[in-house]
Simulated assay, not measured.
Amino acid sequence: MTQYLSSMQLASLKATKGMALIQILILVGVLSTIALYISQSTRQQVTIAQWSIDRAQAYVNAHSAKNAVLFELLTNEWQTNKINSELIFDTSTEESSNVTAVENSTNDGRENREVLPWNLYSEPFKLTDSVEVRLQDQAGLLSLHFPLADLTKKRFMLTGASEEIAEAIGASLLDWQDSDSIARSTGDESAQYIRNALVQDTREILLLKNMSIERFEQVESDFTLFGASYINLMTSPETVLTALSNQLIAEEIVKLRLSPPSRTSAVRNMMGLSSDIDVYFTPNKVVKISISSTMNDVELNQTLMVKFSPYSTGNVKPFTIKQRSGS
């Protein structure tokens, strides 16, 4: 009997040990899961913290770049398609400093320095290693407030629209902004909502007759609310130049940006523009400033539409921000 009980006790002991092993394995599994969660959560928190630091640094860089650009545009001479800025980007230190080109040529670190091409035709250039800037003279774009019928028609024809449809869009744009309710021969005053005042947002042209989203997306960047009554071909996008002539002539005009011709008639004849279109080789004082600041995986973009009055006095501000978007 004693021997039998001992066998029962032995079996019970083995069963107890088996249960204990299972419990230990379950406990280890739970603890491992918790440890993995904590480890993953920690990595996520570190990533978020680093992202926050990078975003803050990118914002600081963008803010600094904005102030530098505004200062350069206010204090330097504007030419046909560029600003005579002497701001130098040193690639060895990733910093910008004001030094002249002569000083640059005699500096021991001249191989690391380059004069920033402060152009006004939206060609990107580096302000620092992490900040890229674009400047677009609004006189180089097609004005929505002063729409030139021939230029507007040709630009819309480049989107694939027929001459009749392109002309109708241009006429509808004029009808949209005039103060009367009398439609032009190819225009439109029949829409339920007609502003009969100046366009306030470029997206309004989506409401014009024969306009589609696809067509709008093709021309949006070529039109502006802040243009002039003339066009500066030396700062026009290549798409505008192509629309007004052809690809080969547009490429020639782009090359001439480095040494603009002194006579407007030469470019007018090259472009085949009608005599009623005013062409001047001078920017107006409204510039679109686009700043892209990158720090590791963070990229911040800011866009400012700025009107400059560098010779203002009294209560008149030297510059006015007309539009602002981005971070």
Results as ranks from 00 to 15, higher is better:
E252R: 15
A183G: 08
Y121M: 01
N315R: 11
H63C: 04
T242G: 04
D222I: 07
D180M: 02
Q177M: 13
Y4M: 01
A171M: 12
A139E: 03
S32F: 10
T33F: 09
W51D: 13
L73Y: 05
S143R: 14
T202H: 01
N210V: 02
M157E: 06
M1W: 05
Q44V: 12
V69F: 07
S265K: 06
Q23H: 07
S236Y: 00
Q138V: 01
D137L: 08
G109C: 03
T75W: 04
V99W: 10
L151K: 00
Q218E: 07
L36I: 15
P261E: 01
A20E: 06
T16D: 06
I249E: 00
E252Q: 14
A68Q: 09
P260L: 09
Q3R: 15
E164M: 03
Q218A: 03
R215A: 07
E251K: 12
P283R: 08
K153A: 03
G140I: 00
E217P: 05
N119Q: 04
I34E: 10
Y4I: 06
R155K: 11
S229H: 11
T224G: 14
D54Y: 05
S32C: 11
R113K: 06
E95H: 09
S39N: 09
K288S: 06
A15N: 12
I26C: 11
L25Y: 01
M295I: 12
R110H: 12
E95K: 14
S52Q: 14
I231D: 01
V279Q: 00
S64R: 07
Q177I: 13
V316N: 15
D108V: 05
E77I: 15
L241T: 07
I194Y: 00
F319G: 07
T152C: 15
E123Y: 03
E220K: 13
P260R: 11
S221I: 09
T75A: 03
L248D: 13
L225F: 03
S290E: 15
L206T: 02
G272D: 00
Q45E: 11
V254I: 12
V306A: 00
K285P: 02
Q247R: 06
K154M: 04
H145V: 04
M1G: 12
I165S: 09
T202W: 00
K307T: 02
Q136P: 09
L256M: 15
E189L: 00
K285G: 06
A139G: 03
G187W: 04
K288L: 14
T2G: 05
E217N: 09
L27A: 12
N81G: 08
D180G: 02
W176I: 03
S290I: 15
D90F: 07
V316H: 03
S105Q: 14
D180H: 03
S122P: 01
I53F: 08
M1T: 09
L248K: 10
L304F: 13
V240Y: 02
N67C: 02
K255C: 04
P283S: 13
L27Q: 03
T202A: 10
A65W: 04
D137F: 03
G170C: 02
A65P: 08
S293R: 13
S92D: 12
N296L: 03
N296W: 05
K66F: 06
I48Q: 10
